[in-house]
C-alpha cells in the first residue's frame, strides 16, 4: 500500500476558510431573498388577516393577526348591497371565462396549426398582420370596437367580452402556440398521415396531445387575465345583474356611504381564490408550457 499523500495544514485551513465563506455568502443571500419576498407578499397576507377583523380594528392595528377573529365580513360581503349575492357575480364571471377559455384554446390551436404547418398564398403578410395586432395598444381599438358591438346590439351582454377571443382574436396566444409547434418535430404528424389520418385527425389525435402543456398555459393565462379584467366589463356591461367579480368589488365601494372595508377585503380574498386554485393545480404543465421547446424525445 502506498501512503496517502499528506495534506498540509495550510491546505486544510484554506479549505475550511473557503467553506465558511460559502456558508456566510449563502446565508446572506437567502436572508435578503426572504426579506424582499416578505415585503412583496405582505400586503396579501395583511389583506387575508384583515378580512377576519372588524371594520374598526382594520385601522387601529397594523398587525395582520386579528385580535377578535370574525367572519362577519364574509357574511355581510357575500350578501352585498344589491339584490344579488356574490354568488351571482361569480356566476357571471364564469359565464364569460368558460366560453372564452374554451373558444381561445380551440380557435388559437387551429390558427397556429395553419401558420406553423401549411403553406398558403400571402402567408407572410397575413402572419405579419396577426403579429401587428399584438403590438397594437388595446385602447386604440376600444372605441371602434364599442361602436361595432353597439351596432350589432351586443351591449350589456357577455358576448363582446368573449366572442372576439373565442375567434382567435388574441394574437399573443396564437404566437405562443406557433412557437411551441415549431419546436415539435413533424415526423409524428407525417407518421400519422402515412397511417391514414387526414389533417383534422392529425391535429386532434397527434398535435393537440403534444400541445397540451402549451394549451394549459393558454387557458391559465386567459383565465387569470379575464378574471382580473376590469375595463372590458366596465365598458360593455351596464346592468348590475351582469356584473362580473371585478366590477362587483368596485360596486361595494361605490354604494356604501361608510366603506365596509372588512367586507371588501373578504370578497377580494374570495375573488383571488379561483385564480390561485387553478394556478396551483396546473402549475406543473404551466411551467412546461411557457418554457417553449420542452419536447421530450
Amino acid at each position: 500500500m502506498t501512503a496517502m499523500p499528506q495534506i498540509s495544514a495550510d491546505t486544510l485551513a484554506n479549505m475550511e476558510k473557503q467553506r465558511r465563506r460559502t456558508r456566510i455568502s449563502s446565508a446572506f443571500r437567502y436572508s435578503l431573498l426572504i426579506i424582499v419576498g416578505l415585503i412583496m407578499v405582505y400586503p396579501l397576507i395583511w389583506m387575508f388577516g384583515a378580512s377576519f377583523k372588524t371594520n374598526a380594528e382594520i385601522f387601529s392595528s397594523p398587525s395582520f393577526w386579528p385580535k377578535e377573529p370574525t367572519v362577519q365580513g364574509y357574511i355581510d360581503g357575500w350578501k352585498t348591497s344589491t339584490p344579488y349575492t356574490f354568488a351571482k357575480f361569480f356566476m357571471n364571471s364564469m359565464m364569460i371565462i368558460i366560453p372564452k377559455m374554451i373558444g381561445t384554446a380551440i380557435s388559437c390551436t387551429l390558427v397556429a396549426y395553419g401558420f406553423a404547418r401549411f403553406d398558403f398564398p400571402f402567408k407572410k403578410i397575413i402572419f405579419s398582420t396577426v403579429i401587428a395586432t399584438l403590438l397594437l395598444p388595446n385602447v386604440v381599438t376600444r372605441i371602434p370596437q364599442y361602436l361595432l358591438f353597439r351596432d350589432i346590439g351586443w351591449l350589456d351582454s357577455f358576448l363582446p367580452l368573449w366572442v372576439p377571443s373565442a375567434l382567435a382574436g388574441d394574437a399573443f396566444f396564437v404566437f405562443m402556440l406557433i412557437q411551441f409547434l415549431r419546436a415539435i418535430p413533424r415526423d409524428m404528424e407525417e407518421a400519422a398521415r402515412v397511417d391514414g389520418a387526414n389533417t383534422l385527425q392529425t391535429l386532434i389525435y397527434i398535435v393537440v396531445p403534444m400541445l397540451t402543456p402549451a394549451l394549459i398555459s393558454v387557458c391559465l393565462f386567459q383565465f387569470m387575465w379575464t378574471m382580473n379584467d376590469f375595463l372590458g366589463p366596465l365598458i360593455y356591461l351596464s346592468s348590475v345583474e351582469n356584473y362580473p367579480i371585478s366590477l362587483a368589488l368596485k360596486l361595494s365601494i361605490d354604494t356604501t356611504e361608510a366603506f365596509a372595508w372588512n367586507q371588501i377585503l373578504a370578497m377580494s380574498c374570495l375573488a383571488l381564490a379561483p385564480s390561485l386554485i387553478v394556478f396551483f393545480m396546473a402549475q406543473k404543465y404551466f411551467i412546461e408550457g411557457i418554457s417553449t421547446g420542452g419536447v421530450k424525445g
Binding site: P185, D187, M188, E190, A191, A192, R193, V194, D195, G196, A197, N198, Y205, I206, P209, M210, T212, K296, G297
Partner: peptide, 20 residues
C-alpha cells in the same frame, strides 16, 4: 393519392412514435 391511401407504411429515422 394521400399517403394513407397509397398502401404504404413507413419507418422513420427517429422512430416518430406518438409520444402520448
Amino acid at each position: 393519392l394521400t399517403p394513407g391511401k397509397r398502401g404504404i407504411a413507413m419507418v422513420f429515422q427517429n422512430y416518430a412514435l406518438y409520444p402520448h
